[in-house]
Design a protein around this nucleic acid. Structure first.
Lengths: 168, 168
DNA sequence: TTCCGCATGTAATGGGTTACATGATTAG
DNA sequence: CTAATCATGTAACCCATTACATGCGGAA
């Protein structure tokens, strides 16, 4: 669905193009590998959700979403509920007792530092991109803002958590 | 590692016991299925990270973490960086342009409502549990607090995002 | 004695990553 | 001519879910 959605947003992209979009825009939200992507493109084509609209040099294939594909995309967006996702970081926090009180606190401090660094990366990314006010770009900015808010929330929370741990 | 960590926290648990811990305490953070868990327990045993400490009625097997296992757990907690996780919800938001401006705004509104409901569930969960001030329980509360803060952040963000969409 | 909960496992299938493998264009 | 980039694909392996399959023990 991620691939289908990107093709709908960026018609006439090749697998290679899509891969770069994944890396640039979706790396923090939905990482995907080259191998997987090419496999998905074949499958989507077989299912009639996308089609090869043109071929270029070096075996390049450009894709378009079919009407069936767009319908499937809209259905997925509206009908299917988002599955619960896993949170590797919180799993670790949950299991920190093995490190003892001070070890757990250290971990949280390190985490806050890591998140702060990550946040800086997001801010740099935001500045480096120049956004239009197309719907696509607005949504991109909206997702990026979610990332920034998540980071800030996490930093505050980690501070609070260290405090909780140091109590009585 | 989740299974190993839980065994370290709750010695002498069976697969069945662990499964209930996954459902009660980790459902929102690290969902796991019965099939997977039993497989992992065999594998962890083979690797010498856990061991069967006793057997009970109905083929019940109780597990303990070995010293090797605890070391592996501590190493994982401290050394390995947390992998980037996927965010199915944000993927959808990123691809909402297929639904048009109003459709996207509707989606965000629905999402905020869904998250609010989820938050209520967390709050009920928090009240229903009675916490000790052991390190384990503290960490549990800390993770739950993270869940609540995440929900609140997301609700505010969704409101802000709808505003962004309705602009010029 | 019957039902519910405890308790464990396997098989089929699909999703995902890593590594391997290959080759065409183009810019310098 | 040579290196970087464009461009696609396959194979092996692991992780995960769904569904299937089985049976004991205790309480009413």
């Amino acid at each position: 669905m991620a691939a289908l959605g990107l093709i709908a947003q960026h018609p006439r992209s090749s697998g290679y193009d899509l891969l770069k979009i994944f890396e640039r825009s979706l790396a923090n939200v939905w990482p995907a590998t080259q191998s997987q992507l090419y496999g998905e493109l074949s499958r989507l084509t077989d299912q009639g959700l996308i089609e090869v609209s043109a071929t270029g040099p070096r075996g390049r294939k450009e894709y378009l979403a079919t009407e069936t594909g767009r319908t499937a995309l809209r259905d997925w967006l509206t009908e299917e509920a988002a599955e619960p996702s896993r949170h590797p970081l919180m799993l670790k926090v949950f299991l920190l007792s093995e490190l003892g009180r001070s070890g757990a606190a250290d971990y949280l401090a390190g985490m806050a530092a890591g998140v702060a660094e990550y946040l800086e990366g997001l801010q740099r990314l935001e500045e480096s991109l120049d956004w239009s006010d197309s719907l696509d770009d607005r949504l991109g900015r909206i997702v990026l803002e979610w990332g920034k808010r998540t980071c800030r929330m996490q930093i505050e929370w980690a501070t609070w958590a260290q405090d909780e741990l140091s109590k009585p």
